[in-house]
């Protein structure tokens, strides 16, 4: 009994050691990817901004606490100028990072949870279930997702009701998160499934099956750890497209005017006529942030994909 337990423990430790060594070698290989490193550094900076906006620019300026005048151009007092309510654009943009990144993160989580679960089940189960799930994912792949998102968002808002708060997030934003999730899980599911299909035939899975491990245990214990790489690379790319979708949906007017994400700031800029008034400082900071974040996520995602995804050396 105890000998067996000790053996398992040492086996587990050994496996951890191998994994740790793998991580170290991966880290050093990643560090050699200059584009990936630049992306990573910028993203970490944005992450810090999103986590502690108050540290950098103080509390979010509201209508009554606005420190500037309407459309103040950039000056020493307001480095990025002020918006139509006189709110400091630097303050707004930094706080916008928190909302945009939160939405991106949650949408990514939803996408991955659904995509990975369906990919694992579909790939492992095979047969009719696989067939059915893949038909459904085909359907979602073909659907013009953005148009669907456009239509789903108001419908869901009507169904949920806007005064509901889910996990402390207002329903309008939650709906955007869910909509992004619904419309983007299929691609993840496809990628995971194909990897599971090839893993299923590998020796160690067969071995586990022979010693009597159930499907749940095989999936969680043997297959999932081997697709984690793929999930990570996919997550980063999903994050980029989630930020993009959120920005676009908010810009179109489906966002929440009381929680300024970057897309929402751009929406107010458009509504207040900033482009025609030449008030470029209301547009440039949030737009630059969106582009920078999406670009960096793409850089990191591509780097990870190249290093982690066994199938693709050069994607994109």
């Amino acid at each position: 009994m105890s000998a067996v337990a000790a053996g398992t423990a040492s086996l587990r430790a050994q496996r951890w050691r191998i994994r740790l060594a793998g991580m170290r070698s991966f880290a050093s290989r990643y560090a050699r990817r200059a584009d990936g490193m630049v992306g990573l550094i910028v993203l970490v900076l944005f992450g810090v901004l999103a986590l502690f906006p108050e540290l950098f620019v103080g509390p979010l300026e509201t209508a009554t606490t606005a420190t500037g005048n309407a459309f103040d151009p950039p000056s020493a007092a307001h480095v990025f100028g002020a918006d139509d309510l006189g709110r400091d654009m630097l303050n707004l943009t930094v706080h916008g990072a928190r909302i945009s990144m939160t939405i991106g993160l949650m949408a990514t989580v939803i996408t991955l949870v659904f995509g990975v679960a369906i990919g694992l089940i579909s790939g492992y189960a095979g047969g009719k279930l696989d067939n059915a799930l893949m038909r459904i994912s085909d359907f979602f792949l073909v659907l013009p997702t953005f148009v669907l998102a456009l239509i789903l968002a108001p419908v869901l808002i009507d169904i949920v009701g806007v005064d509901v708060q889910i996990l402390g997030i207002r329903a309008t934003l939650m709906v955007i998160i869910v909509v992004i999730g619904i419309t983007s899980w299929a691609a993840t599911a496809r990628i995971i499934r194909s990897q599971v299909l090839s893993l299923k035939e590998r020796m160690f899975v067969d071995r586990a099956r022979v010693i009597g491990a159930g499907p749940g245990r095989i999936i969680m214990g043997h297959i999932l750890p081997n697709v984690v790489n793929l999930i990570v690379a996919n997550a980063v790319l999903t994050f980029a497209s989630a930020v993009l979708t959120e920005t676009t949906l908010s810009f179109i007017g489906l966002g929440d005017p009381f929680q300024p994400s970057w897309g929402q700031i751009l929406n107010s800029a458009q509504e207040s006529g900033a482009p025609g008034l030449g008030a470029w400082w209301v547009i440039a900071p949030p737009a630059a942030c969106v582009v920078l974040v999406v670009l960096c996520f793409t850089l990191v995602g591509n780097a990870l994909d190249d290093l982690l995804n066994p199938k693709s050396q050069v994607r994109r």
Binding site: A70, F71, D72, L277, G278, A279, W280, A284, A288
Partner: peptide, 25 residues
């Protein structure tokens, strides 16, 4: 009272600024 009146001259100037900033970026 509070409007900054981004009139024609100032908007022309800021457009040039914008051009330069954009180019640099």
């Amino acid at each position: 009272a509070t409007s900054a009146t981004p009139g024609d001259t100032s908007s022309g100037g800021s457009n040039t600024t914008l051009l330069i900033v954009l180019l640099v970026v």
